[in-house]
Design a protein around this nucleic acid. Structure first.
Length: 310
RNA sequence: CGCGGGGUAGAGCAGUUGGUAGCUCGUCGGGCUCAUAACCCGGAGGUCAUGUGGUUCAAGUCCCUCCCCCGCAA
């Protein structure tokens, strides 16, 4: 008899886990729960959540509760699952939900570090060199449950949030399967988190991505990586948002935001509080992302054009 | 019908109050040089996104149509 599993997830990060659960063929996915569609395209039309799209592709029963705590209790209980799995679902569970069946969570950090909704972004912004995924117990507290399995992953020198997240989503799926076999095999051991060593980071917002050139180049470099592809670090160019998709550390010094070089050979190099940064891939409002050297072919950038966004 | 910017040579941009297009880079040829992402000379390359559209003596430049891209907001 296959174990009955309810899967709760919403964004791209959760998709590989759902696909893996189906692919191994050892479990019966009795329901997929996703947040209601909220993302809109430029014309305001709703777009399906990635998990919803995946569930439909795999012909799995789908629920999109506005409030899981209220509407979800009865339907899920009725399914009589053996286990529920959350992966970046986006809503907190209530005790009523937790009582339906044991719940495991896939989290993109090495808990207890980086609890919260944006662990990957913040790990990069903070300059971490190691990240990972944790398979743990979902409980009322946010990412506080006992950990049963984890895997550490090295963060690449210039790896971006998007790139790392994609990697971790796949690794998370692999580790989830490993963890489930142990769990159903009765070999799982849950280790409580050491709250003393825990750290929590909130959801990233637009303001967090504002570049402050008075900070060390290294920090700005990490900010650029950690906010790519969203919300994308930005400075101001002639008082308009100036997105910086990619940058690299380089030699040089000067007063913050001073333009050290701006030619087609060297690229666009800006002085930071400490060291300098070359803004290798940028974007102006209304324009596409382009290399700094391409930008400089059509536009001149003089002292004062570029400023911190905060 | 959420607000707004843009679609002009391979790339990035200009094109003033409308008069059939320029700049930088790249590219091709030649020259100079021990040499060069250097420099000099010359050339190619655009039906100015779409419309057998409207206004006009005349439209890249004004109006309308339509497709696409992007910023903001969500």
């Amino acid at each position: 008899m296959k174990k009955r599993i309810v899967f709760l997830g919403t964004p791209d990060f959760a998709v590989p886990s759902l696909e893996a659960l189906v692919a191994v063929g050892e479990y019966e996915i009795v329901a997929v729960v996703s947040q209601p569609d909220r993302a809109k395209d430029r014309k305001g039309r709703l777009l399906p959540t990635p998990v919803r799209a995946c569930a439909e592709k795999l012909s799995l029963p789908l629920f999109q509760f506005e409030r899981l705590k209220k509407e979800g209790v009865a339907p899920l209980r009725e399914l009589n699952p053996d286990l529920m799995i959350t992966a970046a679902y986006g809503q907190l569970l209530s005790q009523e939900i937790l009582d339906i069946a044991p719940v495991l969570n896939v989290h993109a950090s090495l808990l207890p570090a980086y609890r919260g909704a944006a662990p990957v972004q913040w790990a990069i912004i903070q300059g971490e060199q190691i990240s990972g995924v944790s398979i743990m117990q979902t409980e009322l507290g946010l990412d506080t449950g006992a950990v049963m399995h984890s895997k550490s992953v090295e963060i690449g020198e210039s790896e971006t949030y998007g790139e790392l997240l994609t990697r971790l989503s796949v690794i998370g799926a692999e580790e989830l399967i490993v963890a489930l076999r142990a769990y159903f095999g009765g070999e799982a051991t849950f280790v409580p988190q050491d709250d003393e060593k825990s750290s929590y980071f909130p959801l990233l917002n637009k303001a967090d991505a504002a570049i402050d050139f008075s900070l060390p180049a290294r920090q700005i470099f990490n900010l650029v990586r950690g906010t790519n592809p969203w919300p994308c670090a930005y400075a101001l160019y002639q008082d308009q948002p100036f997105k910086v998709w990619r940058a690299e550390l380089c030699e040089g010094s000067g007063t913050p935001a001073q333009i050290l070089r701006a030619d087609e050979k060297s690229g666009l190099i800006v002085a930071c509080g400490e060291g300098a940064l070359r803004l290798t891939e940028v974007q102006l409002p209304g324009g596409k992302r382009m290399k700094d050297t391409d930008l400089l072919r059509g536009r001149k950038i003089v002292q004062g054009d570029l400023r911190s966004a905060r």
